[in-house]
Write a protein that binds this DNA or RNA. Structure first.
Lengths: 235, 235
DNA sequence: ATTACTAGGGAGCGAGTAT
DNA sequence: TATACTCGCTCCCTAGTAA
């Protein structure tokens, strides 16, 4: 079953009150709620159960439905996304868990050609290091994939005496609702789609008092490649 | 296109910020946002435009998308429904416009056999009259159809010397967030699916200072046929 | 009354491609 | 580069019906 349809049916069950207690619901009744045939209602219910979104409880001929926490969580994520689409269109909300990377972030970020471009295109000189986040939630990982297919603010690669440095895309980001930074998407990344690398003008781990395993929320701004924050630079 | 899919794509466009200003978006780019092929993205976009949900603006080879107010409204309705499914599961929210009916409501409501049952099953003796509301919004009308397919609290019909009176279903309802009443669904109604008839222990038009054309919000409670409010009765 | 299987049809998908 | 057409193919729908 497709994601939109799935969420739609789950929402209808939530409307009926299948969240906290089982709700009595025959397939012919649900066919009216879902606006499909009885046969489809039956099939949909079975599929949703197989996917782990609900439990069918048959007590004396009568069917009762109860949504699982997995269903509630997906619905809540969806609600948050919809909310954020209204409140701050043009941004993607994420939530990730801090982890320690290979340490190459600080090496890259200290390279002058990168720093010059960050200052020029983002408006700040990044702290030499990246904050690595792992996206725990499936919907966040999928959103991350969508994000990576967008054209961000491009930072060009370059060569120095020793080796060559690849290009990367960046998007401005607001971290924990109050720090203006960016996420970087290296073309050849050491990490996969379940991770995100944040940069900011300051040392995020200290500023936000973060340890491995802590959760960080951040909003990625899709548009507006223009810098909003500025600082004096010595570059 | 099915309703769930439609809302899903519209939401994705809202996420991109196509609400207040046109957003530059090629079909191949949208194919990634929609998680479909470029061909499907093209078809979906055309269909949504034909349905009046967006305008495609081609300015110099590049496609720009802007959602119409119709799209925004449907999304807002959906958001409200989702919100209410979380906040108050087991209820349907409606909004209707007051109009003057044929006046038969007060005649019916004053009939003793009806009154006795209302008191017994709903816990109040209704004011002799119904408040007629017209549902302006399509999503509310569809919700009303879903509601009518539910089993409400049944009020039996009866005969008197002159004629016979039909049965009806009722659901408890909270009107404007503070008056506990009910909606009635006569089996043979003079009105269609775009209307709703409210009853309450008091005269709603005076209590809420309503005139024809005013908007009334009400929540219909799907479950809990048991009375919550009680008053002394002389019936 | 239920639920859910089978069968047939139609909607919607993506590949290929014209423009 | 674009967008969007045709064409199969697949999936999902409903009707009929079994259990």
């Amino acid at each position: 079953m497709k994601k939109p349809a799935k969420l739609f049916y789950l929402m209808r069950l939530l409307e009926l009150g299948a969240k906290d207690e089982p709700v009595a619901a025959s397939t012919s009744f649900l066919s009216k709620m879902f606006e499909v045939s009885q046969q489809s209602a039956s099939r949909i219910l079975t599929e949703l159960q197989d996917m782990g979104y609900l439990r069918k409880e048959k007590s004396g001929g009568t069917l009762s439905i109860r949504l699982t926490t997995k269903a509630i969580q997906e619905l809540e994520n969806f609600r948050r996304d919809l909310e954020s689409a209204f409140q701050s269109p043009g941004t993607f909300d994420f939530e990730g868990e801090v982890f320690t990377g290979f340490g190459e972030g600080s090496y890259y970020m200290s390279k002058r050609p990168y720093r010059r471009q960050f200052y020029k295109f983002l408006g700040f000189d990044p702290y030499p290091g990246t904050l690595n986040l792992r996206l725990r939630d499936r919907s966040h990982r999928r959103k991350n994939i969508r994000l990576r297919s967008l054209k961000g603010i491009h930072i060009y690669g370059f060569d120095d005496e020793e080796r060559s440095y690849g290009g990367l895309d960046t998007f401005r980001a607001t971290i924990q609702d109050n720090i203006e930074g960016a996420i970087i998407i290296p073309f050849r990344s050491a990490y996969g789609h379940d991770t995100s690398e944040l940069i900011a003008p300051l040392y995020l781990r200290r500023e936000l008092d973060l340890e491995d395993g802590d959760t960080v929320r951040y909003k990625v701004h899709l548009l507006g490649a223009r810098p909003r924050i500025l600082q004096r630079s010595s570059l």
